[in-house]
Design a protein around this nucleic acid. Sequence first.
DNA 1: TCAATAGTGTCTCTTAGACAATATTGA
DNA 2: TCAATATTGTCTAAGAGACACTATTGA
Lengths: 217, 217
Amino acid sequence: MKQLFPMVMADVALFIVLNQQLCVLLVERSNAPQAGRWAFPGGILKPDTDHNLDDTARRVLLEKTRVDVPYLEQVATFSGPDRDPRGWSVSTLYYALLPHDRAPAVAGHKTEAVAWCNAQKPEHRLAFDHDLLLKAAVGKLRDKIERNALPLHLLPEKFTLTELQQTCEAILGHGLDKSVFRRHLKDDSRLVPLPGEFLLGSQRPAQLYRSAPGFRF
Amino acid sequence: MKQLFPMVMADVALFIVLNQQLCVLLVERSNAPQAGRWAFPGGILKPDTDHNLDDTARRVLLEKTRVDVPYLEQVATFSGPDRDPRGWSVSTLYYALLPHDRAPAVAGHKTEAVAWCNAQKPEHRLAFDHDLLLKAAVGKLRDKIERNALPLHLLPEKFTLTELQQTCEAILGHGLDKSVFRRHLKDDSRLVPLPGEFLLGSQRPAQLYRSAPGFRF
DNA sequence: TCAATAGTGTCTCTTAGACAATATTGA
DNA sequence: TCAATATTGTCTAAGAGACACTATTGA
């Protein structure tokens, strides 16, 4: 017998940049269906407690990984009778960004393994239609960077322009010219230089910046 | 008592350009809730017959307006317990484009009035949160035009470059330079000039074009 | 001093934007 | 011929891209 209502869920692609590579958080499914494959953290809408699907997304991410994220954005909604063997499903995909210094904060459920996986070429076999979802999420993220958005939520509180550039490069998948990159950030109000604060090393010190108050993406 | 499952629906913003104005199709609600207000054509997912939400969107548009559209694209998904007084709802918004010479093809249900309404500043009071949805749909459409997409699905089969430019201007809400506009279309494979076919009038004839085979947006 | 990276400058080439000039029709 | 619109050209300024140069540290 056919079901009357579809499953309604939210999935989250949580991005991070590790070792100059754009990575995404995946959870190994421990139960059927598709046990052993890797999927985005996701879960079913709870109409009693969720105020909208954004809430659902934030909640499932918190439940599955213990991470609360500052920024969450809708990518698209996927639907159909066959994408999940349990039946007709509608799942709205979100993406979120995590600063690389918070990577250790991510913890799996007792029974589930989690892993940071190369977002451009995942080394795990994905469950359901999540390869499609991943493409969509990466595409949307790239789009924003190409349109001059700054992925500051991927960076720690204080960062240098070089780190920012490397983060953009990891997302775009190709190098950027240092001079051009910095020219664009001239007088950009989204960036605030921290007076007198520098990143030191065996080279010329690098000015540290933080994101402007109220910055959202 | 709370409901266990949300309503799952698709809404469609069907755009057209009439008299150089971007317009959207609205349906006057004849029944509660919100009778008398105007809303996008929309309807509830039928898991038995719809293969996905795109299907739902196409079907409800056909049912409500008798129009089958060549192009349909997802905008975003809106959700929450209060946006529809009937309870927790999830609705995925699509937009579609209709050539202006097909405006008369649109017909309402027996009991419902339909109207083309100014998309930038609607003259009707919208139902539910559809003012939000309208903003999102117009925004997405503008975005695509700004990124050099051609809204050929808003034009009749044969059209001139001037008509194409005016269509873009209607979407963007501001004028474009004729010379610049045409420069961009130089050697654009999306446009095919029709050899020897011109639009005549009391002026220099204008070359007619059609969209390239397989053109999608 | 040197290696390493930060940060700036310069040159060229492409393009956007504004506007002018020319072309072709019907009245 | 004129009015109207199509179509093309030209000039200028801004920006992108490539690359070189200078600056400042620790070793």
